[in-house]
Design a protein around this nucleic acid. Structure first.
Lengths: 229, 229
DNA sequence: TTCTTGTCACCTAGGTGTTAATAT
DNA sequence: ATATTAACACCTAGGTGACAAGAA
């Protein structure tokens, strides 16, 4: 059996509609997909891997609303048509694969080396996704069968785990400002964009508590004026 | 067969008498021990590991000379007595072990995670060495024998490689100023201590060329006065 | 006197969202 | 109008030798 780590954080994102950035060079996921694993044979070898399947066959686009002077993204997604043709999906093997069950079980397994890209020609082995499409991460455990004719038993040596709260929309830029703020509030690498209570997160964070979000406008670079032509 | 990487740099250090810093928390080696491997069975599993054996049974101490106002370390080592009793030496498994021969051979194998410590009670799995003693790094390749009674064949499944130019003295602080300067000149992490030709190293470095060393005295923090009571 | 320890400024290496410019 | 890209400031994380103080 498998237990999703940081489930509370995943839930919080999922409630807003999780978005993951995709870039040409590859971008890590946040939250990172991490699991605790139970019930393996400690002495047997296993391969751990992830892949990503489309949640539906739709392409999305952003709804928007407009103030007197500015246009803002709303948090609503509109269906924009049929999904782009999906190339055969890549898989990401956990870099420690293969390893013994004992090794996998003795600590949290983290897929923090996994990167998402929108570059169809990527040759870095990253996961290729279409922007503005929704995806479901899947986690697979493969028992390395020592028998010569192990192909025959592929079915029974293979187990898949799906956590629906890890679903997300692939984007090249964040569409929902609340997602942005929650990322800034919870990802240590985005600490530079926080503007309040540097102590209070994530140490004292409780799932029920209100996220420490700032107002819409944050002019970190007051030199440049807002773009509105 | 195995080929030592950065041999020219190792030779340059070895000519001066290589020193490696040991600390309580653990310090990496520089140069890093890296090898290219040839002639493995691409489909077989191998474990790669290193250990460190005393070169002799001596403890060393520094010779010194004295100017009118300051005492300097010389580059000469004096025998200071018999070696400290050696605890059973630890080994460092390359973190990718075990892996297929094909995997090991397709790129340089680097032991950059290996750390040296002088803390006899270290529980981080670092290599424990006695300061002021000389050591010879050794590189071992272990073929993972799939046979049930593999213990019987331990001898033939084991191969050791020794590069004498990687010998060094473990120290808690550098003794030979030329070693310090060569480390500063060639280790990217010490770039902050260079004071000349930031372009010229290591890009244009040739084994025959003179190392880009600065003079003895370098007062980076002019606030504090030199210690000479 | 000689060696060891802990702290520090200064780096490498790379993960963030922002922003302006560009592409579609 | 909307989506993508590339450069950037600002972080995390951790590897350097210098230095002053402490230990043997």
């Amino acid at each position: 059996s498998v237990q999703l780590e940081m489930k509370a954080l995943w839930d919080e994102f999922n409630q807003l509609g999780t978005e993951m950035i995709v870039t040409k060079a590859g971008r890590r996921m946040f939250p990172t997909f991490q699991v605790k694993i139970f019930g393996m044979d400690p002495m047997a070898d296993y391969m751990l891997l992830m892949d990503f399947v489309p949640v539906d066959d739709k392409r999305y686009r952003q709804g928007a609303f407009r103030s007197r002077r500015y246009a803002f993204h709303s948090s609503s997604w509109l269906v924009a048509g049929k999904a782009d043709p999906a190339t055969p999906g890549r898989v990401h093997y956990h870099p420690d694969s293969p390893a013994k069950g004992a090794q996998w079980m003795k600590q949290i397994v983290s897929f923090d080396k996994l990167k998402l890209t929108n570059n169809l020609l990527d040759d870095n082995g990253h996961i290729i996704l279409n922007s503005m499409h929704r995806y479901q991460p899947r986690f697979h455990v493969v028992y390395v069968d020592p028998r010569k004719d192990s192909e025959k038993y592929a079915e029974e040596n293979f187990k898949t785990f799906v956590f629906e709260e890890t679903r997300f929309t692939a984007v090249t830029a964040y569409q929902n400002h609340r997602i942005t703020q929650l990322k800034i509030a919870s990802n240590p690498f985005a600490k530079g964009f926080r503007d309040c209570d540097p102590e209070d997160w994530p140490r004292n964070h409780r799932p029920g508590a209100l996220p420490l979000m700032s107002a819409f406008a944050r002019s970190r670079n007051p030199v440049s004026s807002p773009a509105h032509q």
